[in-house]
Nucleic acid binder design. Structure first.
Lengths: 202, 202
DNA sequence: CTTTTCAGATGACGTTGTCACCTCAACCAC
DNA sequence: GTGGTTGAGGTGACAACGTCATCTGAAAAG
C-alpha cells in the first residue's frame, strides 16, 4: 500500500531524475516537460503539481546537483590519506568532472520570475527566501573555502578561494567548449589546475 | 536608387544588429526570428534568405562580436602609451566588459547541424570550412597570445596564455551570475585579474 | 522585350510551455 | 462505517515559436 504522500514524493524524485538524465544526455533542448513526464511515468501536466514551471524544475535539479557535489567535497575533506594540496586538487576536480550540460545548469539563472513566484514574493514580502539552488551553491563554496583554508591559511582563504573557484570555473567552461585541446593551447584542465595550485600553495 | 545586392546586404546587417540588440537587452529568450525580422523591417521568413536557420544567425552574431573584440585588443596592443602589463590588463578587460548575454553567446556552440549545413558538408566534403565564429575566436586568441608574449616572453606565452584566458573566462562567468560581490567572496573582477597578472608577471 | 533570378511575404505544420477544467482515489471528521 | 475535502494526475486548448513550401514582384540578364 502506497500512501499519497509517498507516491507524490516518488513522482517528484522521478521527475528530477528524468530531467537530469535528459539534460546530461541530450543537452538543454532535449529537456521538454512532455519527455520528462513520460520518463517519470506521468503526462505533460503533472510536473505542475510539483514545480511552478520548467525553470523551477531545472532550478531544483541544480540544487540537487550542488548538494551532491557538496557531499563529494565533504568526503574528500574528511579523507585522512590525502594531503591538504591533494584535497584541494580533488575538490576542484569534483567541479571539473561534472558533465557539460549539467555544469552549465549549475551556473544558470532562470529568466524573469513566473506568476506563481511573483505572487509568493508579493505575499511573503520581497524578502521571501533566496533560491534553493543559490543556498546549495553557497554550501558548496563553504566546503571549498575550508579546503582552501587548509592550504593557504585562514587569512588568505577568501582571496585565493575566489581566484581558485573562478579559474576552475573558466577551465571547465573552456574545456566543455573544446577549446583547450586545440593546437593553439595544447594543454589540459589538469595541467592548468596543477599550475594554479603550485602558484598559490608552492 | 538601391541595387538588389545593396538592399540584401543592408537587410543582413539589420538582422545581425537586431539580433545582437535583442540578445543584449532581453537575453536569449527575447531573440525570436519574428522579432528580429520586425526590428529589421522584414517578416519572419526573410532571415532564411540570409541564414540557414536561427543557430546560423546567432553564430554570425558571435563571429561579428569576436571580430570587434579582436580589433579592440589590436588597438590596445598598438598603443605606445601603455606598458606591456597594462596592455595585458586592457586585453583581458575587453573580454570582461562584454555584456552577459552576448558573452555567453561567444562561448556557445550550436546544437546539432541542421539539414542545410549537413547537406553542405556532404557536398563539399567533411572538410567544408570550420565555423566562422571559431575562426574569429581564434584570431582573438592570437591577439591575446601576442600581448601575453610581451609580458612573459615567447617561451611561456602558450602556457600562461591558456591560464589567463581560462581564468578571465571564469571571472567573467562568475561576475555575470552575480556571485563575486556576495558577502562570501567580497571581491571584484578587477581585483582578481590584478592578482593573476601579478602572480604571473610580477 | 522576354526570361531568369532571388529577396521577401504568406500560409501552414509540428512542437513546446502553460493554463483551465475534469477525474478519482486517498484522507479526514464524525 | 459515511460523506465531504483535498490534491495528484489526465486532458483539451491556446499562443508562441522555428521551419518549410509556395507565391509574388521587381531587379538583373539575355
Amino acid at each position: 500500500m502506497v500512501t499519497r504522500a509517498e507516491s507524490a514524493a516518488a513522482t517528484r524524485r522521478a521527475l528530477l531524475d528524468a530531467a537530469a538524465s535528459l539534460l546530461d544526455a541530450g543537452g538543454p533542448e532535449a529537456v521538454t516537460l512532455r519527455e520528462v513526464g513520460a520518463r517519470a511515468g506521468v503526462t505533460r501536466g503533472a510536473p505542475y503539481r510539483h514545480f511552478a514551471d520548467k525553470d523551477s524544475l531545472l532550478t531544483a535539479v541544480a540544487a540537487q546537483t550542488w548538494e551532491r557535489l557538496t557531499d563529494d567535497v565533504h568526503a574528500i575533506r574528511a579523507d585522512p590519506s590525502r594531503s591538504a594540496e591533494e584535497k584541494l586538487r580533488g575538490a576542484l576536480g569534483v567541479l571539473l568532472h561534472v558533465g557539460p550540460h549539467l555544469y552549465q545548469l549549475l551556473f544558470w539563472q532562470p529568466g524573469r520570475l513566473n506568476r506563481l513566484e511573483r505572487l509568493h514574493r508579493q505575499v511573503c514580502g520581497p524578502e521571501g527566501d533566496p533560491d534553493a539552488a543559490s543556498r546549495a551553491a553557497e554550501r558548496f563554496q563553504d566546503e571549498l573555502l575550508a579546503v582552501v583554508a587548509d592550504v593557504v591559511g585562514e587569512k588568505d582563504a577568501r582571496h585565493y578561494g575566489a581566484l581558485l573557484l573562478t579559474s576552475a570555473h573558466g577551465i571547465a567552461g573552456m574545456e566543455h567548449s573544446g577549446q583547450l585541446g586545440t593546437d593553439k593551447w595544447q594543454t589540459t584542465a589538469d595541467a592548468l589546475v596543477d599550475t594554479l595550485i603550485r602558484m598559490i600553495a608552492g
